[in-house]
Amino acid sequence: MSQSDQVHTSETSRSAAPRPGHLPPVEDLVACPTCDALYQLPDVPKGSRARCLRCHTVLTAPRDGAMTRIVMLAGTSVILMLAAIFFPFLELTAAGITQRSSIMDVVLVFADGPFVGLAIAVGALIVILPLARFLALIYVLAPMAFGWRPAREAVPVFRLAERMKPWSMAEIFIVGVAVALIKVAGLAHLSLGPAFWAFVALVLITAVKDTFMCRLTIWKTLEQRSQ
């Protein structure tokens, strides 16, 4: 994945005295979401990134065909997630007994007594929120990829997808699996099921998909197309 690290940031204060009367129209300005620094962004070429000069937050990083790729990768992730939910995840053998568990079992283990809340939380963090985020991205970006008008309520749906990002913890779950494997290694024999590999693939695809995500481009496109 090669992308030039060229910085295409331009400061508005560089050219003219920062007097409100001399500012370009607000449509041409961008405020850094992290530190509020004001920029007049030129059209950033595809494949390069514009970073904030002060806090180095990536302002925009448009990529060629990004919308189509995100939709396809999110679609792949949905299929992998469905496979990961229902196929056996881990298989454990000890004292002649074999126990197969799917991700649903992991979620449902807490489902009785005081642990119901934890069952819901774990289910939400590793299955529901990632799945909801993939579906939300497909809903918002598929019409964009085809060049159509945005779907109904695309703005709140995309905002929700952004909010869900820190709470979808599929990659953390994988590390948890690795730790659990080592913890029971002395107790029993363990083997990995197909769902585990589906889950690993899902985590990798999500990571690739996030490199194509450019919030500014998506928000701008949504705004332009809905007019």
Binding site: T12, L29, A31, P33, D36, L38, R159, W219
Partner: peptide, 30 residues
């Protein structure tokens, strides 16, 4: 460094869209 606030404008903390003052309660874009 000029910021949106020091220029008398309001920047959206999510998508970076800049609004004139008085700004609406919610970002017009996102």
């Amino acid at each position: 460094m000029m910021t949106a606030r020091s220029a008398g404008l309001v920047g959206c903390p999510n998508c970076g869209r800049v609004h004139d003052v008085p700004a609406p309660g919610r970002c017009q874009r996102c």
